[in-house]
Write a protein that binds this DNA or RNA. Structure first.
Lengths: 263, 263
DNA sequence: TAGTGGTCTAGACCACAAT
DNA sequence: TTGTGGTCTAGACCACTAC
């Protein structure tokens, strides 16, 4: 007994999707018009439109009224996370700026900082009490003027309050690790939790996403620690198909080393 | 001048999506029937069906014929990646098994190993010549019997050929780091590149995804290095909304230490 | 002006669940 | 048997592009 046949709209979707993902239909390529697809497959207009809607919802194509459907550009920015020592580079630029410039795009960002009492959720992540004061900074990052990343950062004022780096964007140093080092707090690790989910309406607005295409985001919860103490936590959001996250992780960097242990 | 109004189907989508993501409509909750939505909003059947199709394509709901539409369970498995020393745990279980058991689910897997000539793409990642022999192992991982992860692993036979760990699943040790250590190859880092994209048809089949819901995957390209030499590379694929990736990264773990550098 | 995609109508018919 | 969602028809009308 054979499997049941897929529905007609699914056959169009599968055909075009595999040709797009394989590269046969390159970004920018114009798809056949709806009428052509209708005639080629022998399906009704509605079914062809439905198939194209699904491909748009997957972010693989974009429709342009009066013109046609086109294979979407899925060029990705690279975001690097690694162990390298960044403490000595006082005044160095931010990780976002470095990644953007590496991709040949002009970085810029907007930010807004405010002291607020910690919500229970943020307090849990920072290991402080709900209501304790934290510095909340909202960021919106742009590459060549296009919004490409959002972040909400929270820092306990028990750590930074009253110091020169209390306001993240006003101090003499940029970047969490460098700023904390500046006030004598040695960050020794961070934890990132990566998930994907549909974009929320505010994110669609802030990232200027097409409501019909590419509505998925990558969400990261990041927390920096100095020993057992959390000194910053942030929620970071990217357009899901516009970013590639790179983690370069050392293995077994700590003593006891193999030589020290083995006779 | 105000913004143009969103289309009718979008209003339904936005309403239900925000209520689902906020938790007001919990996983398992039954949505109003199509007829009820039609009456409540005053739209045609087609427009209500279209809105529900989009929510399904986002993986937020699943339709059950003859029953109703339900908020989808988005419980996530956790996959951990960190720097801990795993070399000494000979015979230890695999990372996948550890993560699954931590989530209270029963791990199992299928694998199949074969010697093949390296494709140009794999050769590039391993820093060897196309055509050089590699061990290709296909994995399918299951939790409580449900397929939950796919992997294609490639190891240069120049490294493992003729040793006891040549066939990954037949040696005395499990896991890349432990196996390489067993033959005297000290892995000191790995790199993971994380992206998201729509699932390809074979992946939908192998992961038993609903073609109508949750068609997104997280794809990881991972490469292990011993010094400058790549000793394994793998393509790993997860259902996008079923996994949470956790990276725990040390900062500045290598000499020269701060003390060594600063007078 | 002609052609294209985006939204929408008013249904029909089928597969399946609940009863 | 009734109610539900899934697939599909045969269009209409609008917004916009390309010419």
């Amino acid at each position: 007994m054979t499997n049941k046949e897929p529905p007609n709209y699914q056959r169009i979707v599968d055909d075009l999707r595999s040709r797009i993902l394989s590269g046969e239909l390159a970004p920018g390529h114009k798809l056949p018009t709806e009428k052509e697809l209708q005639q080629r497959w022998g399906f009704s207009t509605t079914i062809v439109k439905h198939a194209l809607t699904l491909l748009r919802s997957e972010g693989l194509i974009e429709g342009r009224r009066g013109s046609g459907n086109y294979v979407r550009d899925r060029t990705q920015l690279v975001r690097r996370a690694h162990s390298r020592d960044m403490r000595k580079r006082l005044g160095s630029t931010s990780p976002f700026a470095r990644d953007s410039e590496a991709a040949g795009r002009q970085p810029s960002w907007e930010s807004e900082s405010k002291k607020i009492p910690a919500t229970p959720h943020v307090a849990g992540r920072l290991g402080i009490r709900p209501g304790d004061s934290v510095m909340h900074t909202k960021y919106r990052y742009l590459a060549d003027g296009d919004p490409i990343q959002l972040a909400d950062s929270y820092e306990p004022l028990a750590v930074t309050g009253g110091t020169q780096v209390e306001y993240p964007e006003q101090g003499p140093v940029i970047g969490v690790v460098a700023r904390m080092d500046f006030i004598g707090v040695a960050i020794d690790r961070f934890v990132e939790e990566v998930t994907t989910r549909p974009a929320m309406p505010e994110e669609i607005t802030a990232l200027e996403l097409d409501p019909r295409s590419g509505r998925w985001v990558i969400a990261i919860e990041r927390t920096y620690y100095a020993g057992p103490t959390a000194v910053e936590t942030a929620d970071i959001v990217f357009p899901g198909d516009r970013y590639r996250l790179v983690y370069e992780m050392p293995i077994d960097p700590w003593p006891p080393s193999k030589e020290a242990e083995t006779p």
